[in-house]
């Protein structure tokens, strides 16, 4: 990594900070998930920056929602507008002086796997990637195990529907990047916590089965997708084997604790 941040990415972070600022005390009910959450954990590793990664996905914990400020009113007064689909908000930003398409902030629907973020999360400080912007907010960020749970469900669903596309390959690579960036012991602890709670045991179990099915060998579908996402410059076998090694390590450790 050269240390320079893609301006599109910096703009996305600014939009997120604008939303967090507008929502005030409601921030405590929010949990950052998705690509921006992954970046918080894997920053040192390269993350494929595609359009979708500039979206900030946020889950709301209904149990922590306050009565005011009302979300729609707060966002609207900060210059956001509803965009494309239910729960999605956007704001116009200019990137490098050129008006760019709005980047959405999406309030997560009941997508499978997001409930894990309510359990495996930690408060991190979110800063601007723009040197002139000194805002800092504390925000709960989905932990790496929860991120894996939701990604694994997403990939498994897409494979089942046979609706795979290039974007899904990048999801597989994100899984490898998380496995590389987070220590096995830490990850295993988080998975065990998820397995111990009624509201997340089933969804976590299914995710670990998907991890086994899709990433535990160098020829499994997920390992192959991750290698494809790296592109023609990838060293043959390297990505696939890395997936297999790390996925197997995690699964073995969980099995030995769980048994």
């Amino acid at each position: 990594m050269s240390g320079e941040v893609d301006p599109l990415y910096a703009a996305a972070r600014t939009v997120l900070l604008d939303a967090l600022e507008a929502l005030g005390p409601q921030r405590e009910a929010l949990i950052l998930v998705g690509a921006q959450a992954i970046y918080m954990h894997t920053g040192a590793y390269e993350l494929a920056v595609a359009e979708y990664t500039t979206d900030a996905d946020i889950t709301i914990d209904p149990g922590l929602l306050k009565r005011i400020p009302e979300i729609e009113a707060a966002l609207t007064s900060a210059g956001f507008f509803r965009w494309k689909r239910v729960g999605a908000w956007a704001k116009m930003m200019s990137v490098g002086g050129v008006p760019a398409a709005g980047h959405g902030k999406e309030v997560a629907r009941k997508a499978r796997g997001f409930e894990a973020a309510l359990v495996d999360k930690s408060v991190m400080s979110i800063q601007s990637l723009d040197v002139s912007d000194t805002r800092v907010f504390s925000l709960a960020v989905s932990g790496p195990a929860a991120l894996l749970v939701s990604k694994l469900h997403k990939i498994a669903e897409r494979l089942e529907e046979s609706k795979q596309s290039r974007l899904d390959d990048k999801d597989a690579l994100d899984i490898l990047r998380i496995l590389q960036a987070v220590g096995t012991a830490d990850l295993v602890d988080r998975f065990l916590t998820l397995l111990a709670k009624n509201e997340t045991v089933q969804v976590t179990h299914e995710a670990l089965q998907a991890l086994n099915r899709l990433f535990s060998t160098a020829v499994s579908a997920g390992s192959v997708m991750a290698a494809r996402a790296v592109g023609p410059l990838a060293v043959v076998g390297q990505i696939e084997q890395s997936c297999a090694v790390l996925a197997t390590q995690v699964l073995r450790a969980i099995r030995s604790e769980w048994a």
Binding site: A44, Y45, Q180, A181, Q238, Q241, S242, V245, L246
Partner: peptide, 9 residues
């Protein structure tokens, strides 16, 4: 050798 977590690690 393969360093599964990459060269940086």
């Amino acid at each position: 050798f393969l360093a599964a977590r990459g060269v940086a690690a």
